[in-house]
Design a protein around this nucleic acid. Structure first.
Lengths: 340, 340
DNA sequence: CGGCGCAGCCAAAGCGGTTTGGCTGTCCGC
DNA sequence: GCGGACAGCCAAACCGCTTTGGCTGCGCCG
């Protein structure tokens, strides 16, 4: 059933029906009600594609989520981010179009989204050093929000980011305060901006206290349980093993915990662990007492906020950029204690 | 830049340009090359919305992913399923439109997708008992594929499912063979079809061997680490604690493992664990030797297959239904041993 | 040499909405 | 009694593409 048929059914013109449904004031309240009822009864809904074409707005937001080539893995934080953003889109009547693309092909897909007008805006996930997507999107003039930041570029775009450097500096300071000196960093892949910043915070804290900095105690890897396990296992076998781990994600931290157990040690007594916690739904960090001492920031809330900002930009794209750097909480859990 | 402008630029008619780009044979090879080059150079790409309207095909597939009301959690298997499906869509030039909706609102969203013609087909996630989505989609005549099945309905639709009953029956048999009698089931929510079937398999195996069946040893909960932990913790404190756990997801199993450790027991020696493993990218089940003995089936492969089937139905929707029930592997890991 | 077939291009009619710019009729004020 | 304002409806022009159904001109055959 299309608008023409439906309006004939009602004995009205397409114009009036469209306006009645669209909530415009030019139709009598009586007529509007009649139209609404008939729409419900006959199951008429305006065709989205046609409406998109006519209005020039697609009522859709694009997400391009990268999937790592090596291990074919998609970062589990996306699910929660998407859930957050999805809430906002649903409330505003927007769709979310998603592409899952291999690392490195994001540029092409973003370009296509911009060029074909299939979306009104995009979210940039997982920004990297010198990320080419940002200048490209700016050139195309399509609204976008970055989840994270890019180093060494002019910050003329919208973004929501956690203060990763500060979070990991504070976490490192905590471990130093507890007397730890050999503190290991189990980080995400180094070309990711968040990993770089976390490492900066870690190094800055060690440096400020004159604690030793070794490459032995720094690992960058994909954020899987397995990589956390392997990294910790290797480090625990060193002649001078670390007494504390600083880990970039809860899922890696679970791997680290496993390595600690396997080595016959006890987490929180023999070895301390601080992790970043994205507050994923299916991976709560304990109950009242957090399992892990953690720097904590909800990735789902970030998803919500990115979506809000993006939708806000669509009507007026030339407003000054919205930029938010979130402080993460540092919560004390059962995984840290004084250095042995 | 639109088709009209672009074709004027080339001194050709819109028709010819459209055909050249579309790969139709009515244009000279020479002209086609010229058009392609110009398109690349001027960054022209046909507007997807307009193309969708003209062809009647949206070139998009809808996914509606439910998010549990209680704990606001989105099942982590979706990320991997989506990644698999996304591969197929990308190769076929399809988009994926996703809605994240609270439990129970899926019906409304599916209806809207069907009615507004914003997608050419949909994937039904997480089917439940008497799921109203299936008859509704059938009535609307929009192609769809169910990831899973629904009990007690005529199986006249397309689906890809794991043989959950058989997988858990085999797993239970394994534990019984090892001498275990008090075997606990830590399952997903009971209204989910897969959870129901797994329970059936578990009960059938116990029943066949005359092993005791107690409600004390059966839990249905959301599949988070926390719920796995709490369930196992509670059961281990029973007067007659289980000697083995059968768990519905690796993430829950990690919680179970934690509870076992906390109780001062060792997994694989004091307590056995068998889990279902969806083979999520970031949660590999160990290396050469699996960490957990597991029934194993790749949810990502299921995503790929569902997408393939769905795309195949779009050209001929009236073909007999594609139905696949996958056998899952039973892999032996370090988490099982003879009953103490 | 006339006619037919075909390669190669084009004009125009959709697809299903939204929106601009009327048009009618009623009501009110002077 | 007349003019203007306004409520309420409608016709028609888009939006940007695809696709049907020509049209032209050339080559080939009888």
């Amino acid at each position: 059933m299309n608008l023409k048929e439906f309006s004939e059914l009602l004995g009205l013109s397409p114009t009036t029906v469209s306006r009645a449904l669209g909530g415009y004031p030019e139709v009598k309240e009586d007529t509007r009600r009649r139209v609404h009822e008939a729409a419900l009864q006959h199951g008429y809904r305006p065709n989205r594609r046609a409406a998109a074409l006519a209005t020039g707005r697609a009522m859709a937001i694009g997400h391009v989520i990268p999937i790592s080539l090596n291990h074919e893995m998609v970062n589990p934080v996306f699910a929660d981010f998407i859930a957050g953003a999805g809430e906002i889109y649903a409330a505003a009547g927007y769709d979310m179009t998603m592409s899952v693309v291999p690392d490195g092909e994001e540029l092409r897909v973003h370009r296509q989204m911009a060029l074909t007008g299939s979306v009104d805006g995009v979210i940039v996930h997982a920004p990297r050093e010198n990320d080419p997507r940002i200048p490209m999107l700016q050139e195309f003039g399509i609204p976008f929000v970055v989840h994270g930041r890019v180093p060494d570029t002019e910050l003329t775009y919208n973004f929501v980011d956690v203060d990763n450097a500060r979070a990991f500096r504070r976490a490192t300071d905590l471990l130093l305060d507890l007397g730890h000196r050999r503190i290991a960093l189990v980080n995400g892949l180094q070309h990711m901006d968040f990993a770089r910043r976390r490492r900066q915070g870690y190094l800055a804290a060690l440096d400020a206290r004159g604690a030793p900095i070794t490459s032995d105690l720094q690992v960058s890897a994909e954020m899987s349980e397995r990589m956390g396990f392997l990294a910790a296992q290797r480090m625990l076998a060193l002649p001078a093993p670390p007494t504390a781990f600083l880990v970039s994600s809860l899922i890696m931290a679970i791997g680290v915990r496993r390595a600690i157990h396997d080595a016959g040690l006890e987490m929180g007594r023999d070895i301390s662990v601080v992790t970043h916690d994205d507050m994923l739904g299916y991976l709560a960090n304990g109950d009242e007492v957090p399992l892990f001492t953690a720097t904590r920031s909800s990735v789902r809330a970030a998803g919500r906020r990115c979506a809000e900002i993006l939708l806000g930009r669509i009507p007026n794209p030339d407003a000054p950029p919205d930029q938010e750097v979130w402080e993460s909480e540092l919560v004390l859990g059962a995984s840290t204690g004084p250095a042995p």
